[in-house]
Amino acid sequence: METIGLILIKTMQIYSYLVIGYILLSWFPNARESSIGIFLARIVEPYLAPFRSIIPPLGMIDISPIVALFALRFAENGVRYLVQMF
């Protein structure tokens, strides 16, 4: 059980880095149209879509990825707590 939990925690950490990378791509022109940007979009956009439907953008600023990262970190801490419990 502990091994599965640790693998799940590590996967969530890697996924949060992918989300951060996808967010950083928005700072550079045409970076999301590159092969790396398209790859990250296919992986990250399905996770970000529910947050974007709940939280509208504030002008030119989209804070939904930040909320999505907080939710991912919250889930990671929950899994970490469950692993320590057993």
Rank of each mutant, 00 (worst) to 15 (best):
P46S: 04
E2V: 04
I63V: 13
P56R: 05
P46H: 04
L72Q: 08
L8I: 14
P50S: 00
G59H: 06
N30Y: 13
R80S: 15
A75D: 06
I4T: 06
F51K: 02
P29N: 01
L69Q: 01
A68P: 03
D62E: 05
R52I: 12
A71N: 05
M60E: 15
M1S: 14
Y17P: 06
L72D: 10
A31Q: 04
A71V: 07
I63D: 01
I63T: 00
F51T: 01
V79M: 04
G21C: 03
F70V: 13
V83M: 01
S26W: 12
R73L: 15
G59R: 10
I55G: 04
L58P: 03
A75E: 11
Y22S: 00
Y81L: 14
N77R: 14
E76R: 12
G59M: 08
L58M: 15
A71E: 05
Y81G: 10
D62I: 10
L25T: 02
E76Q: 15
A49Q: 14
L72F: 11
Q84H: 09
L69Y: 08
P50F: 03
I36C: 03
I36Q: 08
D62N: 08
I55C: 03
A49P: 09
A41D: 11
L58S: 01
T3R: 14
A31R: 05
